[in-house]
């Protein structure tokens, strides 16, 4: 009996290794956790309505996804990677070094990053400057010298805000949402100081350090990658604010409300129209060398960029993706369908 089991085990491994990497009949997608809900929705629809297998989508984060994507050409490597930011020059270089020289960039829509609090409390009316002053590690004092952030309550930051302790639950540094929050909200507020803005030209690394550093004295709390958990914590603690993607606000409107930033409310229309300041674009990248080798890649791009998916009334909009303007959609779709290689 035991001999039989052992033989079976060895046989299983043998077959497994033989099958490995020689054939693959489904698309493999990796990348951003922000794009994950949209990418999986398209993958599922694609699998159910075509004769292709459902693509396998992994949520690895934007950076992790691009690393896997750029590792090489061949069936052991993914075909598509999602990103909640644009590919960096350094990543394009790594890709090229590993033979992934031709990639197609597809911009799929926008995502707003919201600061929300419990509906039990009053809605916040913030500015990016107030956000930076509340959450920066070092802020300028009256004479312009940088001191560790002394602000304890929102009132200390801006007299029009309530005298509530600053307590912000946000994503950890590994998250793309955190990167975008730091870049759009924090840096946006930091630039409001002319002195600091001038520093960008003279001392870029110091400028970055000052604008991007989040305080570590307990006012900003790393709440993990799970945005549902942040929503639950906000419900339990009406004084706290949480940072997460617009789709979570959209799904939990009875529990949380999005703060107004620079006089603009985070709503579908404001993000799609570009008025809401803390929003970013979402992308996916296609490895052109795999098109035609792995079946269905072109059809998948077609499915993702069809109006029923990414249009203003498409199923992705129902899931919280903010669509691009119509002329941009047309342009990107035709470029994507002809697999136009990425150029800066």
């Amino acid at each position: 009996m035991r001999k039989l089991l052992l033989a079976a085990a060895i046989a299983a491994i043998g077959i497994g290794t033989a099958l490995a990497a020689d054939t693959r009949n489904q698309i493999r997608i990796v990348g951003s956790s922000t794009v994950f809900p949209f990418s999986t929705a398209v993958a599922e629809e694609f699998g159910k309505t075509t004769n292709f297998k459902t693509p396998v989508v992994e949520s690895t984060g934007s950076g992790g996804g691009l690393k896997l994507f750029c590792a090489g050409i061949g069936l052991g490597h993914p075909d598509i990677t999602n990103a909640s930011r644009r590919i960096k020059d350094s990543e394009v270089a790594i890709c090229a070094k590993n033979g992934v020289s031709s990639i197609t960039e597809v911009k799929v829509g926008f995502d707003g990053i919201v600061l929300a609090n419990s509906t039990k409390a009053k809605r916040f009316e913030l500015t990016r400057k107030a956000i930076w002053l509340a959450l920066a590690k070092d802020v300028p004092d009256a004479s312009g010298n940088f001191i560790p952030n002394p602000n304890k309550t929102w009132k200390d930051v801006d007299a029009s805000l309530p005298a509530v302790k600053i307590e912000v639950l946000g994503p950890p540094p590994t998250s793309g949402t955190r990167d975008a929050f730091v870049e759009l909200a924090m840096e946006g507020g930091c630039k409001a100081f002319p002195d600091i803005k001038a520093m960008k030209k003279t001392d870029k690394s110091k400028y970055k350090a000052i604008c991007h550093a989040i305080r570590e004295d307990g006012a900003f709390i790393d709440a993990g990658e799970n945005d549902n958990l942040i929503v639950q914590k906000l419900e339990a603690n009406p004084d706290a604010l949480g940072v997460f993607g617009f789709s979570f606000l959209d799904q939990n409107r009875d529990k949380v409300q999005g703060s107004i930033v620079d006089k603009v409310e985070p709503s579908f229309d404001n993000i799609s129209g570009g008025q809401y300041p803390v929003s970013r674009s979402l992308y996916f990248y296609v490895k052109n060398a795999h098109v035609g080798v792995v079946p269905g890649i072109k059809e998948f791009i077609d499915a993702f960029t069809s109006e029923t998916a990414w249009g203003p009334y498409g199923y992705l909009a129902d899931r919280g993706l903010i669509p691009l303007p119509v002329d941009e959609r047309d342009k990107i779709r035709s470029a994507a369908m002809s697999l136009m290689p990425y150029a800066k």
């Binding site: 299983a12 077959i15 497994g16 099958l19 490995a20 994950f36 990418s39 999986t40 993958a43 599922e44 699998g47 159910k48 297998k53 459902t54 396998v56 989508v57 992994e58 949520s59």
Partner: peptide, 11 residues
């Protein structure tokens, strides 16, 4: 990963 098909084999 998001896998919408029920696996049919060990691979």
């Amino acid at each position: 990963a998001f896998i919408a098909d029920i696996p049919q084999s060990f691979t």
